[in-house]
Design a protein around this nucleic acid. Sequence first.
DNA 1: CCGCCAACTGTAGGATCCTACAGTTACCCT
DNA 2: AGGGTAACTGTAGGATCCTACAGTTGGCGG
Lengths: 248, 248
Amino acid sequence: MTPTRCQEIIEAIGQAGDVEAIHGVCADLTRECGFEQFIYAASVPTSFVKPSLIIISGYAREWREHYNNQHYMGVDPTVAWCAHNILPLNWVHLEADAHGNPQLNQFMSDARDFGLSSGVSFPIHTAQGDSAMLSLASPEQHGKAQPRIVEAMPYGQLFTAYLHETVRRVFADQMLPVSRADLTPREQECLLWVTEGKTTWETSQILNISERTVTFHLQNTVEKLGVVNRQQAVARAVAMGIIRPQYN
Amino acid sequence: MTPTRCQEIIEAIGQAGDVEAIHGVCADLTRECGFEQFIYAASVPTSFVKPSLIIISGYAREWREHYNNQHYMGVDPTVAWCAHNILPLNWVHLEADAHGNPQLNQFMSDARDFGLSSGVSFPIHTAQGDSAMLSLASPEQHGKAQPRIVEAMPYGQLFTAYLHETVRRVFADQMLPVSRADLTPREQECLLWVTEGKTTWETSQILNISERTVTFHLQNTVEKLGVVNRQQAVARAVAMGIIRPQYN
DNA sequence: CCGCCAACTGTAGGATCCTACAGTTACCCT
DNA sequence: AGGGTAACTGTAGGATCCTACAGTTGGCGG
């Protein structure tokens, strides 16, 4: 792939304005990289127990149905990898794990039946706590597909980032309901010290205000974040990147 | 850059075993991409107020000193960008922001004096809450440098990910002190429901155990994480990725 | 068999948080 | 001048958390 072509694809990703357009540009870049099927999945931590998922599938519909029926999301090694890692996963490395894991073996055998033999998965994590993955797959044997996977590595990683950025724009309403901007500076400050384990009184001493005022700001924070108490506010704020390292 | 050369560099990054080796491989890839200086910086959220930084600098020593003396980390637009974004930052886009911001203008003018005129910064964020950036810079004018920047985009993004992975390995002792594995399944479960805003009693009902037992597990959690109370435990756990979306 | 450890449970007092009450002050923009 | 909003403060009762006390049970490996 030439740098120019790469820039064109990035451009196209940036201009996609709805799900269909995103699907289209994904299909294009999948073909361009020499693969046949793709799937993009994003996870937004609106809740830790039940996160919302945004899936744009270029996999066979039958496979998606089978996948859901079998609850394969809990088995799928690409999902597990991308949830924890930042490096691309070449599916050739999954073979070894499958030995002695009948569940995983079954999954991979089923996947092969639907044309998902070789491929590569790209994870992406944001500072706001949401994450996504893009998988590019082909029915080729692992050996034959390696040159294509190696070549796709740099581009796939970059495309995934741009893709996720576009999804965040298009699905803005389904993403987390508030941003850092919705909390006032004082509210952020109070919340920051709470995440550091300070009590209301300690925080009031640090900020040179009354204990009551700290409580007041934290109350507002809890309400703005749409949560029920401090610990949930802390969880939400950290997951969303509202509270982040201070560079002074 | 050929796919083969790209793979070789990735290989080299993976084999680096200490700071000097990482510095060396960074210098190599910087040259390979057509740039002159680099800097890698990682931030580990051991504390939200005072995160630990790991910096591997291929910038001029004098610039680093000036940068620290002027407390430029709070001004540096590449740091601000990489803290929040997932896409590469082409420095050419910073020009517009500098107008009407004397502090930023001063910073960029100073940077130019040290051979940092054009360049690109690559952010990376992990599921464990730490993040890093790699900047590649050149003394060339923006216009002249564009082809090099465009070409470096995909590779830089990928190298940054591998680089950060290596740093996490080499600096393992300076990274976060505990991993998910250090909390027992029950402890993770209790913590999960706390992050969802459940009270001790509610959690006990969900898990079908006594209120006292939930308190017990959470006590252990607080102790293992080395924090002082529940909110800090929640913050730490979320920042570290111990608590993450459940796929069921 | 014994030690280790995860999981579990009870009581009780003091610390802290949550909620609902009811305001004041200062700044910015229209 | 009036509206909006951030920041600020007080009281008080009930809910919840924290801590220190003192244990039991079951599984696993040496």
